[in-house]
Lab assay of single mutants.
Amino acid sequence: MSIQHFRVALIPFFAAFCLPVFAHPETLVKVKDAEDQLGARVGYIELDLNSGKILESFRPEERFPMMSTFKVLLCGAVLSRVDAGQEQLGRRIHYSQNDLVEYSPVTEKHLTDGMTVRELCSAAITMSDNTAANLLLTTIGGPKELTAFLHNMGDHVTRLDRWEPELNEAIPNDERDTTMPAAMATTLRKLLTGELLTLASRQQLIDWMEADKVAGPLLRSALPAGWFIADKSGAGERGSRGIIAALGPDGKPSRIVVIYTTGSQATMDERNRQIAEIGASLIKHW
């Protein structure tokens, strides 16, 4: 067993022997301040990774656009098919120029040779490549099948209805392509620590998230040296922004954090800054 596999296998073990965790309302004060600064709703939840206990939450059962955070769930569904012998990570998928959609920095470079399922998941999570996500959605049967996968996990809230990039439209009061912070946090925890996926697939999923290259201005910008984070960000229309993450000190994750916002007129930089400040408060009061 590799060191990384050992780390993920012992996530519940280490967490069980940690000192009790206590909620700190100071972080919620910052979440509410972010709402004021952005002029928009902000949803927040913080779960203990081992027990699933909610440590703090704000608007945990209000719907927010998922945006690209759905790509972690998508690759979880792909990995479940791999575990069941219905898919192979090494299978190569070929596609054409007509398949390319807006923001496809990886797939646009491989029109000639195609990409493997493993490479597509890596591109979808680490670079948020939209064509990679659409190609992977095709392998599982489309958005409705991802929703069905989530329902089978016990998540009857999260739903995907459309493809990239239309799913980022974020129309107010439109339930399409949305989740709730509580539902997303619980589902992410199941994917990373539950028995739904094999140990190898859980490790692969967290490795992809740990290698995320496009979430630097968010929670990662607030992390002290030595902290662990595996995350996936999302951005959408109407001032929408979000991030889902597993993080913790001492090089291992111990909490799940989900943050979503929508309806702001603020710039992307300002949305990023507010999420980073929430992260800084979380870490300060850990």
Rank of each mutant, 00 (worst) to 15 (best):
H24Q: 11
T27C: 05
V31T: 05
V31K: 01
D33Y: 10
E35D: 04
A40V: 06
G43H: 00
Y44D: 03
Y44C: 01
D48N: 07
L49N: 05
N50T: 14
G52M: 06
I54Q: 08
L55G: 06
E56P: 02
F58E: 05
R59W: 04
P60H: 15
T69I: 05
K71R: 01
K71W: 00
K71L: 01
A77R: 09
R81G: 07
E87A: 07
Y95H: 05
Y95D: 04
Q97W: 12
D99Y: 07
V101Q: 09
E102C: 06
Y103L: 05
T107M: 06
K109A: 13
D113V: 10
M115R: 05
E119C: 04
A123M: 01
T126A: 10
T126M: 09
D129C: 03
T131W: 04
A133R: 00
N134I: 04
N134K: 01
L136M: 08
L137W: 02
G142R: 03
P143Y: 04
L150S: 06
H151K: 13
G154Y: 05
V157E: 12
L167Q: 04
N168A: 07
I171S: 15
N173A: 13
E175V: 13
R176M: 09
D177Y: 04
D177T: 00
T178D: 00
T179G: 01
P181Q: 00
A185I: 00
T186P: 08
L188V: 11
K190F: 12
K190N: 15
L196N: 12
L196R: 14
T198I: 06
D212C: 03
D212K: 05
K213W: 08
G216C: 07
G216Q: 10
L218M: 09
L219H: 03
S221G: 09
P224N: 05
G226H: 12
F228N: 05
I229G: 01
A230Q: 01
S233C: 03
A235P: 06
A235I: 05
A235E: 03
G236H: 03
R238V: 10
G239K: 02
I243N: 01
I244G: 03
D250E: 14
K252S: 12
P253N: 09
I256M: 08
V258Y: 04
T261F: 13
T262N: 10
G263H: 06
R271Y: 04
R271I: 10
R273C: 10
I275E: 02
E277S: 11
S281M: 12
I283P: 02
